[in-house]
């Protein structure tokens, strides 16, 4: 694959990947391509997600997360397609970047995708969205949507998907703890005051829903690992609230 008007650093890396003959050589070439951190490498890194080469895919996902914003729309375009082999990896990259534009895909995939690895990656990503990237009026509705989805994912028959939902709930709860200490005053225009107050009330309600669900998972889930993870999430939330 040749990309016109690419920066000079890119072409040798692409050539090396092209020439790689073994799975290991492909992985090393992708690791170097990812480490270059070039937005122009996004199409190739996304292409790599479709190889059946987990080592290379891990490196490509890390590279895409590091590149961040420029990778978001190409990833969303890929996820609209039907390449299931690459879906889980692309979802992980999108989840890792945490861009607000990914929220619809993440909520849908967390509940509906037939592959548990995709539901798992999406649930984890939902809690880790970059909430400060949302417009202030959109932030709480988005968080509420993520919460409702994660509560639903806690019913998934697969332990590992429920486990991912617990990590998502923890991240969402921690984000709420962080925003309840006044950091949102930056929104401060007077006409937002009423909104902020309504959001704060909503957050308190959301937080208690989230804690109630974690509590019940910590006590009754059939999986010991899951009970432990829910316990850890509760401890971290409690610790954060005390700070």
């Amino acid at each position: 694959m040749t990309i016109n008007s690419a920066p000079p650093a890119l072409q040798p890396l692409l050539d090396r990947l092209e020439a790689a003959a073994t799975a290991e050589a492909v992985r090393f070439a992708v690791e170097d391509l990812a480490a270059a951190n070039l937005p122009e490498a996004v199409p190739m890194l996304i292409h790599v997600l479709g190889y059946n080469n987990p080592g290379a895919a891990v490196a490509a996902v890390e590279g895409l997360i590091a590149i961040g914003e420029p990778a978001v729309m190409p990833l969303i375009a890929l996820l609209d397609g039907f390449n299931y082999g690459a879906r889980a990896w692309a979802l992980r990259a999108l989840a890792g970047i945490g861009d607000p534009r990914g929220i619809d895909l993440l909520t849908q995939a967390a509940v509906e995708d037939f592959a548990l690895s995709v539901r798992r990656a999406a649930a984890r990503g939902l809690g880790k969205l970059q909430w400060q990237g949302f417009a202030s009026g959109d932030r709480f509705p988005a968080q509420h949507k993520a919460l409702a989805t994660l509560l639903q994912v806690c019913e998934d028959p697969e332990w590992v998907v429920r486990y991912a939902a617990v990590t998502g709930l923890e991240a969402l709860g921690l984000a709420w703890e962080a925003s309840s200490d006044g950091t949102e005053a930056e929104d401060g225009a007077a006409n937002n005051a009423a909104n902020n107050k309504a959001d704060a009330t909503g957050r308190a309600g959301g937080r208690s829903q989230l804690q109630a669900r974690l509590n019940s998972l910590a006590q009754t889930d059939e999986s010991t690992a899951l009970r432990a993870r829910a316990t850890l999430a509760l401890q971290r939330l409690e610790h954060s609230a005390q700070q």
């Binding site: 479709g50 059946n52 390449n83 299931y84 082999g85 037939f114 592959a115 690895s117």
Partner: peptide, 26 residues
């Protein structure tokens, strides 16, 4: 890019992910 080869590779990958990903489907 060679479409045919890509499509073939895609099919194999899809099959692999189906076989590998979940017992219940199998």
């Amino acid at each position: 890019m060679d479409r045919l080869i890509l499509n073939k590779a895609w099919m194999v990958r899809q099959l692999l992910s189906l076989l590998g990903c979940c017992l219940s489907v199998q």
